[in-house]
């Protein structure tokens, strides 16, 4: 397993948001984590990368325990996190943002990530904050990939982006996973996420509700009524 979360409990100060959450992501696997606003999806990613200190349980990445490891050391453990709101360095150029992504492995070779997101190649000297939302998201994912992660965490890839752009970016995840990187994709847009994911989990009020393969979840009636906004394909005639 690339990522193994076992009974992770986390929150902010005295407020507990996650209650004994367990999930896993395999090598080369895309796993979707969906659920309503406020369920704790972002909190889970933040707990994995030590962005919040109040956490207990176990988070293992490629066998290495991350509870007790500081944020600065998470990148060296092979984890890249595209945080909520992307958090690009807005006043720096795309090139500098990418260079910063490769900080730990001292990776300055932009070639591979530009191959994945060719649109960025024309934008290298542009200030990151001045690009469109979709380009910024591409830059954020490319920046994360510059660290050559074994595990890629993406928070709300689709937020604020046009559906066509979302599809364009989602389509790249398969290629990223093919190289062995495990991807944990947090999405409110469950439909889009399940289309590219191998498996998925549904987080509700800080607990895992449903889980299964993407196909199973997409067909599950509870899932359909709550998150996919529609009737199952073979709805019984009443």
């Amino acid at each position: 397993m690339m990522l193994e979360i076992d009974r992770l409990t986390a929150g902010y100060g005295r407020v507990r948001v996650l209650h004994e959450v367990s999930l896993s992501v395999d090598e080369g696997e895309i796993v979707a984590l969906v659920g309503p606003n406020g369920a704790g999806k972002s909190t889970l990613l933040r707990a994995v990368t030590a962005m919040i200190p109040d956490r207990s349980g176990s988070v293992r990445v490629a066998g290495r325990e991350l509870i007790g490891v500081a944020v600065e050391d998470v990148a060296a453990a092979g984890v890249a996190h595209v945080p909520e709101g992307r958090r690009l360095f807005p006043g720096l150029t795309v090139r500098d943002n990418l260079r910063l992504g490769g900080w730990v492995p001292r990776n300055a070779d932009l070639g591979p990530v530009l191959e994945i997101f060719p649109r960025l190649a024309d934008r290298l000297n542009q200030v990151a904050g001045s690009m469109s939302g979709g380009e910024q998201q591409m830059c954020a994912i490319a920046r994360a990939l510059m660290g050559r992660p074994r595990l890629l965490l993406i928070d709300e890839l689709s937020l604020g982006l046009a559906p066509l752009v979302v599809d364009e970016i989602l389509a790249r995840l398969g290629g990223i996973a093919e190289s062995g990187t495990g991807v944990l994709l947090v999405e409110q847009d469950a439909g889009a996420a399940l289309e590219v994911a191998d498996r998925g989990y549904v987080l509700e009020l800080g607990r895992i509700g449903l889980s299964g393969t993407a196909a199973e979840l997409a067909a599950d009636p509870r899932m359909r009524s709550a998150y996919l906004g529609g009737d199952p394909p073979q709805a019984p005639v009443s």
Partner: peptide
């Protein structure tokens, strides 16, 4: 610019 994001990159 963003201390939290910089730390995620592994910057101390």
């Amino acid at each position: 610019m963003d201390r939290g994001a910089a730390r995620l990159m592994g910057i101390r």
